[in-house]
Amino acid sequence: MNKKLIILIILIVLFIGFPFVLSGFWVRLVTNIFMFAILASALNIISGFAGYAAFGNMVFFGVGAYTVAVLMNKLGLSFISSFIFSGLVSILLALLLGMLLLRLKGHYFALATLGAAEAIKYIIDNLTDLTGGGQGITIPSLHGSPFFVNSVFYFLMFVLLIVIVAFTWWLSKSRLGYALKAIRANEEAAGVMGINTTVYKITAWTLSGLFTGLAGAVYAYWFSYIDPPTVFNVMWVVRMFVIILLGGAGTVFGPLIGAFILESLSELIWSQFLNLHLGILGTIIIITVLLIPNGIVSLLKTDRGLKGIIENIKKSRTGAL
């Protein structure tokens, strides 16, 4: 336990030092990895812990981003207050959608969240006066040297990541976390045992939506231009799911490991092949699902070297006929 803590502290110190040593490209790359780690950790709360496939989770990302954009562009609010507002809006949206949709299960829930996300995308697309519609909207950008700007967004994402990881760690040991795992294992039994499943599910999705929305808020300020097809793209959620599967669903550090692997692969290797970008991502998805559905960490838990890893791959395969 202590060893893990020491490694964690060393890592945190290393990451604090990063922007002062590395060039802008690398700082932005790591910021991007942080962002996906936050998004995947947030999805992990509802999908990994509670087992609900929230395939429309990008709705919170988009709404968080748009809240910041509209408040800063139209009302001239500061980023900090817009950021807080976007957290509130995300919570409110998650509560409303949760009460409406969390009575559904399985595929029906997945489809309904996707449908709701698309509907909200079109609402924002149609509120042209407020949101700029399909033209998109610009956000007043942060002024300063490139080093300053890069570092600000790096640390914003970093702090958010530390908060959500600490939260997930707490969750994995808390009453709420156990209740969610019970719901994932068998919702009816959990209900019979006296767990108020509705309250717990809505709580989980609200937390998930809050962190996703905050990440979207930082993203909007970071990129200083957003439009509906970009921030409401279903690819966000697909990446989150692949990251969770790669790293390990329902674990604390799985989403971090998965985000690190997928996003550095994406940036460094296949961004070179523009024509094959989607195909390679698709292939990675298929291989991940077939070979490592429980995450890379679970495969490495062996003392028998490569042979043990191969055995783990065979064991971990789920859902074969």
Binding site: V238, V242, G319, L321
Partner: peptide, 21 residues
């Protein structure tokens, strides 16, 4: 057939991978 009885994430993610491929 190797994942058909897996959880929803597995089959949804898998078929999405197939779709973009």
């Amino acid at each position: 057939n190797l994942v058909v009885r897996g959880s929803i994430f597995i089959t949804l993610t898998f078929t999405f991978g197939l779709q973009i491929l």
